[in-house]
Amino acid sequence: MTEIAEEDWEVVKHRVESMPAHIKLALGSYGSLSRDDMLTHLEKRDAIGRKMVEMQIGYLKFFKREMEKLAHEQTADNEA
């Protein structure tokens, strides 16, 4: 099991604290989670909490890749 950095737990916790209270997350077989449910799982750092953090990490990796692609394309355009 990959270790999750402390700052990643904190970032996700802050994101969830800012989440509109009226919406819920349907997370596969884990069912429906309210904002409070999500904060509880993050506090416990259990399997559901881990999934939430892993989703956040995936989200950031996606943007990093997209930015790198964009930078590469811009470099290619400049050289052309």
């Binding site: 919406i23 819920k24 997350l25 596969g28 884990y30």
Partner: peptide
Amino acid sequence: EDFAFYYDPN
């Protein structure tokens, strides 16, 4: 992975 989506219970 798990399929996930947000929804409005209302």
